[in-house]
């Protein structure tokens, strides 16, 4: 993996910025047999133009990047970076075949998506969502959406740029660095935070209260919900959530769960159990 001392063909900072700009459209041509293939090729085009001057070479390079590809969109920046460094080496005369380059892409895409989906979609977005929503619902109005939009995009753009640079500069060494399990640790930690926070948000955000009043000999109008709150606030939402998790685990589609909750809510209201 010794990098040649002097590369005759290198990517300029402008090329890298163009590639970074294009990465924001990666998933636009999402299609079934080959998933994000066109998106990846689209991102690579500034590099292909810079590195290969012959039309034939450009054609083979473009074809090489139109094979099936799919990963978590933000991690694609890291894969792009590594692929850029491989393409650069190939353009400068290193013996790298189409299959070699594709093997690196395929090798990285599955494992990266698997460990980073929980971080971005499972932890960061739900927690940021809930935090922003709580700002708005507690009367701070427009601040919630602003906080959500700004925080999300600063982190996203910062990460994408950093990942692409890191991948480009270090090339295949990135795979070794990732092999130490640092990503797995990050994912484990993020999943823990995500689960903890999901648990924490249930008693605060799910509004489910029981209506019936209990009438005993000594006391009248003792609310069932008050009784339940003494036992554990948010017990009903907790049970409802665990029930949904169990159903999801048994491959019930989320859409049917939504319909089910809607149906039960109407039924509960009609029977006078829920308020």
């Amino acid at each position: 993996m010794a990098t040649p001392k002097q590369l005759s063909k290198t990517l300029t900072l402008g090329d890298q910025l163009r590639i970074f700009g294009r990465s924001g459209l990666e998933q636009a041509a999402w299609n079934y047999p080959r998933l994000q293939n066109l998106g990846f090729c689209y991102i690579m085009i500034p590099a292909i133009k810079r590195l290969y001057t012959q039309r034939m070479d450009q054609a083979t390079a473009a074809t090489r990047h139109l094979v099936a590809f799919n990963t978590m969109p933000y991690m694609q920046s890291l894969i792009t970076g590594v692929t850029l460094s491989l393409e650069e080496q190939r353009a400068n005369g290193q013996a790298l075949t189409d299959a070699d380059i594709n093997a690196v892409k395929v090798g990285m895409m599955g494992s990266l998506a698997g460990v980073t989906d929980p971080v971005w979609w499972g932890t960061w977005r739900p927690i940021l969502s809930a935090f922003a929503a709580s700002l708005t619902l507690s009367g701070l109005g427009i601040l919630g959406p602003v906080v959500f939009f700004v925080s999300w995009n600063i982190v996203r753009l910062g990460f994408r740029w950093w990942a692409q640079r890191w991948g480009y500069r270090h090339g295949l060494d990135v795979i070794q660095d990732l092999g130490t399990g640092i990503l797995q640790k990050l994912t484990l930690g993020a999943s823990l935070v995500g689960l903890f926070m999901m648990g924490a948000m249930i008693p605060r955000w799910v509004k489910l209260t029981l209506k019936p009043m209990l009438t005993t000999d000594h006391q009248t109008g003792y609310s069932l919900q008050t009784l339940l709150n003494q036992l554990l606030p948010g017990l009903l939402p907790l049970v409802a959530t665990l029930g949904c998790v169990w159903l999801l685990h048994h491959r019930v589609k989320p859409f049917w769960l939504l319909i089910g909750v809607l149906g039960l809510s109407i039924l509960g209201y009609w029977l006078g159990w829920l308020a």
């Binding site: 998790v245 685990h249 809510s265």
Partner: peptide, 15 residues
């Protein structure tokens, strides 16, 4: 107010 549980459940289920 109650539909939120499905969202929680989906996130929990993935992690």
């Amino acid at each position: 107010g109650a539909l939120v549980v499905v969202s929680f459940a989906m996130v929990i289920n993935t992690m």
